[in-house]
């Protein structure tokens, strides 16, 4: 049952991602992205990474997406004009890029498979609760955790500075 669900969410996620990338209208893209993140959260739950799944909903599908929507509304971005379409007019560039994707995709897959070959992974269920992640976070990763808070503060200040009207 979970396996079927996993493949189902995968397919939905794939479709949503393609929708985001290929759609001309930014509003639709944002909505598609929210849907994609929801699916991803579901996949995290299926992988028993409950804490990450909750965060995915809260942070990504919640906060970040609201931010995106907000900016799209604020800028009142119109859909792309149809002429150049999705594809950049430079043909040679497109050719090179296509080559790059194919190789990138193949290499990514290849790396994953290689990683499996070198260290064969067992399905190790029963790990990933909030308690587990919290323990790791507040023991071995305490310093990075604190630094992350500093990073957020810097981002906050930077955002205010960038977004405010010219003095």
């Amino acid at each position: 049952m979970t396996t079927i669900l996993f493949y189902l969410f995968s397919a939905l996620l794939l479709g949503a991602a393609l929708f985001v990338v290929l759609n001309r209208n930014p509003i639709y893209s944002v909505v598609g992205l929210v849907f994609a993140f929801m699916n991803l959260a579901a996949m995290y739950f299926l992988l028993e990474a409950y804490f990450i799944g909750v965060l995915q909903v809260l942070v990504y599908a919640g906060a970040i997406m609201v931010l995106f929507l907000f900016v799209v509304m604020l800028l009142n971005v119109q859909p792309d004009r149809p002429h150049p379409g999705l594809i950049h007019p430079d043909r040679w560039w497109f050719g090179i890029m296509a080559l790059i994707f194919v190789s990138l995709f193949l290499l990514l897959i290849g790396q994953g498979v290689r990683a499996l070959l070198t260290s064969p992974a067992e399905d190790a269920a029963g790990m990933g609760s909030v308690a587990d992640v919290g323990e790791a976070l507040f023991t071995s990763f305490l310093l990075p955790f604190e630094i992350a808070s500093l990073l957020l503060t810097v981002a906050l200040i930077g955002t205010v500075f960038l977004a405010k009207k010219k003095v």
């Binding site: 560039w93 090179i96 990138l104």
Partner: peptide, 20 residues
């Protein structure tokens, strides 16, 4: 910016090929 990004990607691919 996309030209620059693709050059970065090219670099990533080279690194991956090297690792491979």
């Amino acid at each position: 910016i996309q030209h620059y990004a693709s050059i970065i990607l090219l670099g990533v691919i080279f690194i991956l090929i090297y690792l491979y």
